[in-house]
Design a protein around this nucleic acid. Structure first.
Lengths: 323, 323
DNA sequence: GCTCGTTTTGAAATCGATTGCAAAGCCTGT
DNA sequence: ACAGGCTTTGCAATCGATTTCAAAACGAGC
């Protein structure tokens, strides 16, 4: 910057101001400085700028990447959401620092800001850190969580209405005059638990609960196989916690000659491409990641300005397709 | 840091050294300082550190995010790769700054380093920037590209062997005694073009080329519908440029009563979950994103040390399933 | 007790910007 | 010609670390 200043015959502060388009610099001077800077390919050093400004215009997005290697991340859902968050942030001139949940946790979430040099954090999913989040909020760290709404959350959560999603599916099955409802999903996953709960409440009658070990296609297929082999009467309405699991269960049903949708209806969750591209196309519950991303970012900005950002429950839609 | 120094009764440099586990500090002092720092929740300010060290231990990963909103990103492939890159980088204590291709291009790729304060760049896909990349390489910017191998690339490319993938599929179809081969994919996409080329070369006889407008399920389905409606004899071996497109074509084939795999074989590309979870399970060509991620990172580190990093063509596998 | 080589420590400079404050330059009105 | 108000500019301090280099402390050997 000193060089540019010399070349333009002005001082460093003037160059700095010109580059920020400050009104303190005359248009004449500004134009000259910008021209020289451009010609010499000068750009401000981001690290120096960050240090002095005590702000980096960078947001950490924390994802539970560990899943990946094993699970071959089942749902494109997260990627889509990530993309939408990135877009929403770039509109606000903010950069995205991607952190795996693990590396973020290393120094403790509360030091993430100065440790990674970011201004705020977006957590994708609680994944069991609820208590840490509560502490973070108390410490005044600006962050938002994209995940499940919990009773005692004192931090901002943006999440889709899992209960509503479950209820919509139950209503749908009811309108089809189905009788023997089953829910399929792993226990211990908060959001999926809420889907289950909404479903069961709305359904009223007994809902058979088929537990699966994880979120995978295989897990769901095998669990369903075992269940069908048992000889007990098969369900005529199946709600799976995710599209991937729905497809797994569907495979098992097909093997056993249970026709979908005549004999049994199946509904997934997420509206991932899997659902759309499958044949028959899967009936599912959709969450709008575009809106979610935009709101997450908006709320984060709020909480970075010190305003408290309220949580929000986003509506979900039932997408009725062929199953 | 001054505060910690005061509390420990030492000077700032000593604290700095202790935190870096420098051998210049006695174990005794080191322990005391670390203890005090921990108790007071002190972490070094990343921006200041970066400034002084002239290095940020952060890598920019540039993705063509614009696709997202429209296409609902068809293949989880990119996400998987991103995850694996992130993992490989975190092993080396490097952070990931996610950039959309657009925002990265704003200041010109050549200023990405100081502009975003990163030490190196990984580009996911060339997406038409080949010439810019050539210039970047000349300018000595440390970066690697995950994409297609091009004749006159003077930069490091890590990419899977698309030609080989195409050849494997041709061999497979030959061994099944198929006669009328068809390739389906958009024109103008470099990597898919290479798949097509490898396929055609190995096949020997004429390959019908069915062009589709984009990478989408719908595009492929509609193109295939039109083709089948035309009345010309249907192909008995179809190779699609991606799994998503294969599934689209498969849907059209089914509509027209063409049985897969008896009457016609179908093969996709990517081995995305789509392929595995579809029924019948899709035969496809697999690229190992785990290895790709690891090598990308390794090569980038090389080129950051000034060593020139050679390009590499990763092998691909044919995964024969039910189609 | 003194010298010499080692280990530890600290003073001061530095990384590359931004910003508060004072001064300079320029008008305008009298 | 000069006071007074505005617009521009520059000096110097600052952000929070790291690193060079010189000095202090320590031990060993004679």
């Amino acid at each position: 910057m000193d060089d540019i200043a010399r070349l333009a015959g002005v001082s460093k502060p003037t160059v700095s101001r010109a580059l920020q388009d400050s009104p303190l610099v005359s248009d004449e001077t500004k134009r000259k400085i910008l021209e020289i800077a451009r010609r010499h390919g000068y750009v401000v050093n981001r690290n120096a700028q960050n240090l002095r400004r005590r702000r980096s215009d960078t947001i950490a997005v924390v994802i539970d990447f560990p899943h990946l290697p094993e699970n071959r991340l089942s749902d494109p859902f997260h990627f889509e959401l990530l993309g939408n968050i990135a877009n929403a942030l770039s509109v606000r001139q903010q950069d995205v620092l991607l952190c795996s949940s693990l590396s973020a946790q290393a120094g403790g979430f509360e030091h993430l800001l100065s440790n990674k040099g970011v201004d705020g954090i977006i957590f994708m999913g609680q994944s069991g850190h609820h208590e840490e989040f509560r502490a973070l909020a108390k410490a005044g760290v600006p962050f938002v969580v994209c995940g499940a709404h919990l009773e005692d959350a004192n931090y901002c959560v943006v999440g889709s209405d899992n209960m509503l999603g479950g209820r919509l599916v139950a209503q749908h099955f009811s309108s089809l005059k189905r009788k023997r409802a089953m829910f399929l999903g792993p226990h211990g996953h908060i959001e999926i638990g809420q889907r289950h709960q909404g479903f069961a409440e709305e359904w009223g009658a007994a809902v058979e609960d088929l537990e699966v070990p994880d979120l995978s296609f295989i897990g769901a297929r095998d669990a369903m196989r075992t269940r069908l082999d048992s000889g007990k009467p098969a369900p005529d309405a199946l709600f799976a916690g995710s599209d991937t699991m729905a497809l797994g269960a569907l495979a098992a049903l097909r093997e056993h000659g249970v026709d979908v949708p005549t004999t049994c209806n199946v509904c997934g969750y997420d509206d991932s491409p899997l659902a759309l591209h499958h044949s028959p196309a899967l009936t599912t519950v959709r969450q709008d990641t575009r809106i979610a991303g935009a709101i997450l970012v908006e709320r984060l900005m709020q909480s970075m300005q010190g305003t408290s950002a309220p949580s929000i429950l986003l509506p979900t839609d039932l997408i009725v397709r062929a199953t």
